[in-house]
Nucleic acid binder design. Structure first.
Lengths: 204, 204
DNA sequence: ATCAAAATCACCCATATAGGTGATGCCCAA
DNA sequence: TTGGGCATCACCTATATGGGTGATTTTGAT
């Protein structure tokens, strides 16, 4: 297998399911399983962890796909994409509550499917591992720039260090750290460590 | 206008652009502007804050759409969706680095476009509220699980709120918030807010 | 119906953090 | 040469946070 990405396909129409599976294999993905009904899918998910799930909303006439999505949201940590011929606002409103990574209407445009899968996998993994502070990125938003020493202090706070620890880390006195923090707070217009982190997060 | 959602359309082919704009209006969205070139789009974004951007990748033969996406990522906080006829892996790989909310291949399936817009707006607003926090993910690493109320407190801390504010947000007394925090610290074995955030970050 | 866990709240105390003011030396650019 | 930004440190005060103990009510599962 050229890819280590395994995708679960939930689709009650065998022909379409095969079609999708064939496409996935062609693109180098693994097909973890094809499930034709809600309970099959949930059973499978109970014992396996595919990397992504493609979900038909209407299985045998009911919105079982949304139930599966809810199950995934509640119990698993796997991105999923809806594939459905129902694009009325009511269905979409219900669907979006489950936070799908995408929603593709049938007939399936395989190009859109492919790009949506790629982006879903990428965004999902980025969402979970989001860690790089970037001084330049922070400074693009600021009138009064954060200096490198101040940035060291921000990194310390980001890493959960207290003032004394930051002082030791950066070989200065606690008073200096406090001064830096005061200046940082002024520049970012925040008043506490966690507020600072929330602000920084919004800027990166 | 039936919707307060304003969408910027960046598309160099006037006919397609009009087509999209017409569709958006039909669905009740506002069309903030139609831009036919990169610089127009960036100028517009410099002075306006649409709620979402639809981005054609290939403007006049170049991948200018991706440049615009990078500009948005760096300077703004607006979700965007790519609309393009290029679905080769190279283009997609480049595109996904910019974290688009979606990627729809041409010819445009308007049903997919509509659902993707709805889901993008929804997920994006949720992302801002909750960030990337995920209770289940946190709990998979823990012996003693974080409860939902405790998680609300973590979200508050994550969003830079102090104890009093968290108490107001969750309609309980400050003492209760403090109790929750103490329990959270015990469970995660941390001793301060920023240490908590660093720990949570390492778990998601 | 009963038990355990979760959620709620109240104290107290010690420490960390935030905010304010002031001061020194350094370096670099005008 | 001079002034502004930067880095360094001190001291003071007020508030927020962390840590300990104990207690009642609510909730959920068996």
């Amino acid at each position: 297998m050229s890819s280590n990405i395994n995708i679960l396909v939930v689709e009650d129409e065998p022909i379409i399911a095969e079609d999708i599976a064939g496409f996935l294999l062609e693109k180098g993905y693994g097909v973890a399983e094809i499930c034709y009904a809600q309970e099959d899918a949930i059973d499978f998910l109970n014992q396996n962890n595919p990397d992504l799930v493609l979900l038909d909303i209407n299985l045998e006439g009911n919105s079982e796909g949304i139930e599966i999505a809810k199950y995934i949201s509640k119990n698993k940590n796997i991105p999923f994409i809806f594939l459905t011929s129902y694009t009325d606002k009511k269905t979409i409103d219900e669907a979006k509550q489950t936070h799908p990574m995408g929603y593709i209407s049938k007939p399936i445009d395989f190009n859109s499917l492919f790009s949506t899968i790629e982006i879903s996998l990428f965004n999902f993994s980025k969402m979970l591992m989001n860690g790089n502070l970037d001084l330049d990125k922070i400074n693009t938003n600021l009138l009064s720039k954060i200096t490198t020493k101040e940035f060291d202090v921000i990194k310390g706070i980001y890493n959960g260090r207290n003032n004394k620890q930051i002082a030791e880390d950066t070989f200065v006195s606690v008073n200096t750290v406090k001064t830096h923090i005061k200046n940082i707070y002024d520049k970012l217009n925040v008043h506490s460590r966690s507020e600072l982190l929330a602000m920084v997060r919004s800027m990166i």
